[in-house]
């Protein structure tokens, strides 16, 4: 962290004047350095060709720092992943901060470094941004918005219309981890092992799957807020088809399952950050699973179920003891400010 003559954020840092410039020069511009950002213009000027995906998301997670990451990781990975779910590789991001007066510079700095590292891992450049400061008590430390743009993979053909009966449903990794990590920090629940958030950039994994399987991937979704149950219900609703999943196939870490028992949550409804759901053509599903398991963040992937023609718009879970039940969409808010 550079030596600065202030150790907390104050209102002047959002003024657009001298203090803003000091903060940017020593911070964002230097840390996130790239040719497009270096122009210091109001907007980035760039060349793009072909089909693009474009996505925006705001991040308000509380607490700002949690085991396995902080709001900065989420802000980069979240938008990168939203683009990946469109079949696109994120190329450029915007980055906008809303800071609360009194935020310690040290925390701001840690977040900025996380943003830099996350952007590097994802191979994405931050090319424009904004910094605003609100009075103490009018925000909660830091809110971040990122918007991303990237080219669609040439072999991608992803849309709800392509979901067909018989399609298999893949989940790329352990579910419910992020939500339980956040919840355990808030509730003071401790774990014997170190449980960390699964926040991760999924773009490389998804693009490699698209390289190999292209149009056999019918749909991609990341089950963040609302969890796996909500995404599956959206698929059933929007595709006018049924979804069947098997409880014994759902990948859940043992300590996460234990915490869910204790805190009274169903892992299907708990938020994820570094997990995606793929709906795949049945003939390609097994090979896709094998490939996914060999890729980054895919080691624990499973085929958890399939799309069916019976019971349209309904998600049915086959419980591990052989029973059946309807899995509904999350009603209300299970955990506020999870991302």
């Amino acid at each position: 962290m550079p030596k600065l003559d202030f150790d907390v954020i104050n209102l002047g840092h959002g003024s657009g004047g001298l203090l803003t410039n000091k903060l940017l020069e020593a911070g964002v511009f230097d840390v996130l350095k790239n040719p497009l950002l270096d122009t210091h213009h109001d907007g980035a000027v760039l060349e793009m060709n072909g089909q693009m995906a474009f996505s925006t998301d705001s991040y308000v997670v509380s607490p700002v720092f949690f085991p396995g990451g902080n709001i900065g990781d989420l802000a980069v990975n979240g938008t990168v992943n939203d683009l990946a779910m469109c079949g696109a590789g994120a190329q450029y991001l915007s980055l906008a901060f809303i800071l609360e007066e009194g935020l310690p510079m040290a925390e701001y700095w840690d977040i900025l470094i996380s943003i830099k590292n996350a952007a590097q891992r994802a191979g994405v450049q931050i090319i424009t941004g904004d910094t605003k400061v609100v009075e103490r008590g009018k925000g909660d430390k830091i809110f971040i918005n990122t918007t991303g743009i990237g080219a669609i993979h040439p072999r991608a053909d992803i849309s709800m219309q392509r979901v067909r009966p018989g399609d298999r449903i893949l989940i790329s990794g352990h579910i419910a981890t992020h939500g339980i990590v956040i919840m355990s920090v808030r509730q003071g629940v401790e774990f014997e092992t170190t449980l960390t958030s699964d926040t991760a950039n999924l773009n490389h994994t998804v693009l490699q799957l698209l390289d190999t399987f292209g149009p056999d991937i019918h749909l991609l979704r990341d089950p963040t807020r609302g969890g796996v149950a909500t995404v599956l219900n959206e698929i059933a609703r929007d595709a006018h088809l049924g979804v069947e999943i098997r409880q014994d196939r759902l990948p859940v870490l043992e300590e996460v399952a234990g915490a869910c028992e204790l805190l009274g949550f169903d892992p299907l409804y708990v938020a994820n950050e570094g997990v995606f759901i793929a709906v795949a053509a049945p003939a390609a599903a097994e090979a896709m699973l094998e490939k996914l398991r060999s890729l980054e963040y895919g080691a624990h992937a499973q085929i958890v179920g399939e799309v069916v023609e019976t019971h349209p718009r309904q998600v049915i879970l086959h419980s591990q003891i052989g029973g059946r039940r309807v899995v509904n969409m999350l009603t209300g808010e299970q955990l506020p400010r999870i991302c």
Binding site: Q187, V189, E254, L262, L263, D266, L317, R325, T331
Partner: peptide
């Protein structure tokens, strides 16, 4: 849940899903 928890909340409620049979 053996391996997991130290601090035990006394009673745990949750917002569960709509009750209905498959």
């Amino acid at each position: 849940s053996g391996s997991t928890v130290y601090r035990l909340p006394s009673t745990v409620y949750r917002y569960a899903n709509t009750l209905s049979d498959a």
